[in-house]
Every structure is written in structure tokens, then in C-alpha cells.
Amino acid sequence: MKTALITGANRGIGYAIAKGLRPDHRVIIGARDPKAGRQAAQELDCDWVHLDLEDPDTFGPALTKANGIDVLVNNAGILIETSMMEYPQDFETSMQIMLHGPYHLIGACRAHMETRGWGRIVNVSSGWGAFSEGMEGPGAYGVAKAALNALTFALPRDLPDCIKINAMCPGWVHTRMGGASAPRTPEEGADTALWLARLPDDGPTGGFFRDRSPIPW
């Protein structure tokens, strides 16, 4: 059974991804709040680790406890709408959680995936970080997601063919971040991530998807 780690999976889209992978994976919820992580893991009958994307010191212990990740879903995100120029710390926080953290987790999981000869990395991005859709994300959100997209596009050149990495946009989802007016359920938002996490050996890599179809960067 393959082991899947989903960051920020104690609620929302991450929780739905964890639930969707649960039947055929050993699922590990990564949560910055131990109480929330423990509760979500109990509900889903899966494991959890303390993983705070703002605190790289939590990465090593979490991955040691996981003992090898086959599927990494970089789902954790933050929406800070302040001015990038007036609040530089908010910019740094956004980039740490949605770019630097995922990059370092990918690096830490790579060796196990290479040894196993199989790995899937799913970066949960957004149309708000797409140049094709006007980069409409507020504050540093769109910039961080655009950078995550660029990382997804470029990393295949430095990864073996057995590791597939893709980004996806879940759409406008009814979560704490998306708000009550959003038309999609977390389960609908999670569908493409679940598909990418289970890609066959001839599946795509270095792509950007919504509703299981390619979308422009």
C-alpha cells in the first residue's frame, strides 16, 4: 500500500483528498494544529503528523514518522490580502507556505520515490495564479501560486521519469478560504488531485489541470 501525505488536510479540500485516497493508500494528514490534525485523523481512521509549513523544523520529524512518502499533495495554503509592498512579512509568509515549503518537501520525499521507482506529486494551485486568467489572486496569493506553477513546470527536468509532478486548480470551492458562496463542494474540488495522485506510468507530468483537463498557465 502506497503512503500519501497531504499537507493542510485537517479540513477543506485537503480533508476531501485525504478521504478520497483513504481506501487504497496509507494516508497521513499534515496539520499545523495538533488538535485539529488528531481529530481529522480520528474521523478518517488514518495517521497524522505535526507539519507547519512556516516552520521547516517540523519537516524532518514529520517525514521520519511517515517513513517514506509515495504520494505528496502540497495542499496547504494561506490567503492574505494585504499590500505586498506595505506588508513584506505577509509576502514572505505566503511564499514560504505555498512555494518554499512545497519545494523542500519535494526534495525530502524524492529519494524514497526514486528508490521505489514510483512517485506522484500534486501541487494544489489556483486559476488566481495563472497568467492566462489575469493573475487575479489578491495580495501575494496569486504570485505564490504562479511561482508554484512555474516550479511544477520546471521540475520534471530534474526528476526521474518515475516521479510525476503536476499542478491543479480545484475551482471555487466552498471552504473557509473559498467562502459560503462558492459553488463547488470540497469533494468536487478534490477530484482532479485524486486523479493526479493515481496517474498511470504513461500519465502526464509538468502540467496544470482543472476538471482532469489541461489548462493554460
Rank of each mutant, 00 (worst) to 15 (best):
I69Y: 08
D33S: 14
T115I: 09
A4T: 09
M177Q: 13
T152G: 09
G178F: 09
M113P: 04
C162S: 15
I215M: 12
R157Y: 06
A130K: 07
D70V: 05
P200H: 07
A31W: 02
G129L: 09
A18C: 07
N67Y: 01
N123M: 00
D24W: 09
W48M: 03
S132Y: 13
A31F: 01
R26H: 13
G37Y: 02
A167E: 09
F208N: 05
L53Q: 09
F208M: 10
G189K: 05
D47Q: 11
K145H: 06
Y15T: 01
G37A: 03
C109P: 08
A144Y: 00
R22H: 14
L155T: 10
G117C: 04
Q42N: 14
A9Y: 01
N123T: 03
I69V: 15
F91H: 10
K65C: 09
M98Y: 02
A144M: 01
A76I: 11
A18R: 00
A16L: 10
P34D: 03
A36K: 15
M95F: 15
P186R: 11
T93Y: 02
M85T: 14
P160I: 03
I97P: 08
A147T: 03
V122A: 11
D33R: 14
E43T: 10
V122F: 07
P214L: 04
M84K: 06
D52H: 03
I29D: 01
D191Q: 15
S126H: 10
